[in-house]
Amino acid sequence: MNDDDHVARIEGILPHRWDLDALRSGAAVCATLAVPFRIVAAIVDSDSGGLNALFFVLFVAFFVVGAGCAAWVQRTGTPLSHALVTAIGTYAFVEIVFVAIRLVRGTQIPWFSIFFTLSVISAAGVIGGFLGSRLQAQGFVPSSRR
């Protein structure tokens, strides 16, 4: 059986474009692991560039993990799409909440920073999608499918 047959068989079992369980799983990982670093960075609001960089790197790294999770557990044959939607969707939701808080508090909204981070998170989604796809290709399956 070639790769096309395998994908066609998976698409036949799950005819929907999006595996909502995979998206939820990836978003839960992002929200649980990455978002706390975003919150801590906002609370600490350090003048230390090193500390801010550490929080940012951890934030992005856990987005790679969350996007990779979504890519790995999806069952529709579209790991990159699931990883990107997970990373971008979760980040957008988190930033909408932070923008709303800033609007209520009357503080300045750093639009450039938000869109720059969105591009970094998109790259993290691509990396996570590649890693999740590689896990599937190597035969590693989530425990829920054993």
Rank of each mutant, 00 (worst) to 15 (best):
G89R: 00
F63D: 11
F115M: 06
H82I: 06
L131M: 06
L131T: 08
F112M: 12
P79W: 04
V94T: 13
T76R: 15
V99R: 07
A92W: 08
G132K: 02
G129C: 05
F130K: 12
G66S: 08
T86M: 07
P110R: 05
F130S: 11
A61T: 09
V104C: 08
A137Q: 14
F63V: 10
I127P: 00
V73C: 13
L80P: 02
V73M: 11
Q136A: 12
I114E: 01
I121E: 11
F115H: 04
V126H: 03
I109S: 04
G106L: 01
L58Q: 01
T78R: 15
A70Q: 05
L80V: 12
I121C: 11
V97T: 08
W111N: 05
F98T: 15
F56N: 13
C69R: 15
F130P: 10
A123E: 07
G128K: 01
F140A: 14
G139A: 05
T86I: 09
Y91D: 05
V99P: 02
V73D: 11
F130I: 15
F59S: 00
L131F: 03
G132T: 05
G132L: 03
F63H: 13
G129E: 07
T76N: 15
G89L: 00
F112W: 11
F116M: 13
V64R: 00
A137F: 10
G66F: 03
T90W: 06
L118Y: 08
R102V: 07
E95L: 11
R102S: 12
G128Q: 03
A70D: 02
V126E: 06
V141I: 10
T90S: 13
A124V: 01
Q108F: 14
F140H: 12
I121Y: 09
T107R: 09
F59K: 00
I121K: 07
F116A: 13
T86Y: 03
L118E: 09
Q138N: 15
V141E: 11
V64M: 00
V141N: 06
Q108W: 12
A137M: 10
A92N: 02
V94I: 10
L103G: 15
A87P: 11
T78I: 12
W111I: 10
I101K: 08
V85I: 11
G129N: 03
T117L: 07
F59A: 00
S81R: 15
E95F: 09
T78K: 14
A70L: 02
F62R: 03
S122N: 09
Q74A: 07
L135M: 14
V85M: 08
I109R: 05
T78L: 13
R75P: 13
T86Q: 08
A67F: 04
S133W: 13
V126Y: 05
A123N: 08
G77Q: 08
A67D: 07
G139F: 02
A100R: 09
Y91W: 06
F115I: 10
Q108L: 12
I88T: 12
L84S: 07
V60W: 02
L118Q: 04
V141A: 11
I96K: 06
R102Y: 06
F115L: 11
F130V: 15
G77T: 09
A83Q: 02
P79N: 05
V60M: 03
G132V: 05
A100Y: 12
I121A: 11
L135C: 09
